[in-house]
Structure formats: C-alpha cells, structure tokens
Computed example of a mutant assay.
Amino acid sequence: MKLQANLLRYLFVIVLGIVFSSLLPRLTVNIEIAKLLFGVAGIFFPVSLAVITSMDLYRVKNTEARREIRRNLRDQRNGLCFHFIMAMIGLITIYLIPDGGGTIEPSIIGFISVNIPLVVTLIICESILYMTITFTSTQKLREDIEDKLDEEERRRKHRE
C-alpha cells in the first residue's frame, strides 16, 4: 500500500474542505449527505474487495508475473481497506462532535473556518472515487489476463 500517497491525498482533501469552508462560510452540508455517501461506500467496498479476492491466477504459469499480480492485488486490497477506514473515521467524527459537527467558526487564525460535514463529505467522496478506480482497474486487469491466457491457449492448440 502506498500509505504516504494515500495520506497526502486525504491531507489535500481536508485542506480543500477547509478552503471551501472558509471561502463559502454560509455553505451548509446536511449530515444526511455524508451518511448517504457512506452507505454507497459501504456497498462499494465489499463489491470491490470481492473482485480482488476472486481473481483466479491458477492458469498463470509465469511465476514472476503471478507474483507481481498478487503483490498488486494485495496493494489494492490494502488501499481499499485504508480508504474505507478513512470514510468510517469521517462519519464517526460527525457523530462524536455535538450537533452533527457543524462549523468551527473563524478563530485566532482569522478567517479560517471548518465545516465538519463538508470536510467529511469530501473525505467520503475521495474514498468512493478510489474504490471506483480500483474496481475498474482490477476488472480490466482480470479481463486482460483472461484474454491473454485464452490467446495463448489458442496458439498452443494451433501448434498441435
């Protein structure tokens, strides 16, 4: 798992949420949006994980290629878990802060404010985006492997 890259991505999303909160102080995000998006992530996570764990590499005879694919799948699985955990932490944060989080008004720093539901919504959106990209890339990898194996099988039969 590329932990540093994932953490940087979330740091960017949090900073983006703070910038939006500060520039658009009247923007309100209903907590229900974050809950709805978390429900989407909650469905997407096991589906994406199922695609990864159901990859059958039995027919891949090249051990180096099989090892590399397994390492890639392990990284994707770990990334999915990390992103789902981040979405969970975001949603839990809303419930731990009284009144659904609300907005932390400008303080000593000046005009900076933090709209907690907005930041959490962006965090969950990032998780969903990552899960979508992971799902589609894993499905494409699966199809490419199957096509390549079928092509090799046809060539082998043609030679016989």
Rank of each mutant, 00 (worst) to 15 (best):
K2H: 11
K2D: 10
Q4K: 14
Q4E: 14
N6F: 09
L7F: 11
L7N: 08
L7K: 13
L7P: 06
R9Y: 05
Y10C: 02
Y10K: 07
L11T: 12
F12R: 01
F12S: 05
F12N: 06
V13A: 02
V15K: 13
V15L: 15
L16K: 03
G17T: 11
G17I: 11
V19D: 12
V19A: 15
S21A: 07
L23F: 11
L23G: 04
L23Y: 13
P25Y: 02
L27P: 00
L27T: 11
N30S: 13
I31E: 14
E32P: 00
A34G: 02
K35Y: 05
K35A: 04
L37G: 04
F38L: 05
A41Y: 11
A41K: 04
A41V: 12
A41E: 14
I43E: 08
F44E: 13
F44Y: 09
F45L: 06
F45E: 03
F45V: 01
P46T: 06
V47F: 09
V47P: 08
V47K: 13
L49Y: 10
L49D: 02
L49E: 06
A50P: 00
V51Q: 13
T53R: 12
T53H: 14
S54N: 12
S54Y: 06
D56H: 06
L57P: 00
L57A: 02
Y58C: 00
R59M: 13
K61S: 13
T63R: 12
T63A: 02
E64M: 06
E64D: 11
A65D: 07
R66D: 03
R66W: 04
R71C: 02
N72G: 06
L73G: 06
L73A: 04
D75I: 01
Q76N: 10
Q76F: 03
Q76E: 10
R77E: 08
G79I: 04
G79K: 04
C81E: 09
C81Q: 10
H83V: 15
M86P: 00
A87Y: 12
A87E: 11
I89Y: 01
L91C: 14
L91Y: 07
T93S: 11
L96E: 08
I97N: 02
D99L: 01
G100K: 09
G100N: 07
G101C: 06
G102S: 11
E105D: 08
I108G: 09
I108K: 14
G110T: 14
G110Q: 12
S113N: 14
S113W: 12
V114N: 06
N115G: 11
N115E: 12
P117S: 07
V119W: 06
V120L: 01
L122W: 06
I123V: 07
C125D: 00
I128W: 00
I128Y: 01
Y130R: 10
Y130M: 10
T132H: 11
T134H: 00
T136C: 01
T138Y: 05
Q139L: 09
K140M: 04
K140L: 08
L141N: 14
R142G: 09
I145E: 02
D147C: 05
K148V: 08
L149Q: 04
L149S: 08
L149T: 03
D150G: 04
D150R: 14
E151A: 09
E151M: 07
E151G: 03
E153K: 13
R154A: 10
K157N: 14
H158N: 10
H158R: 15
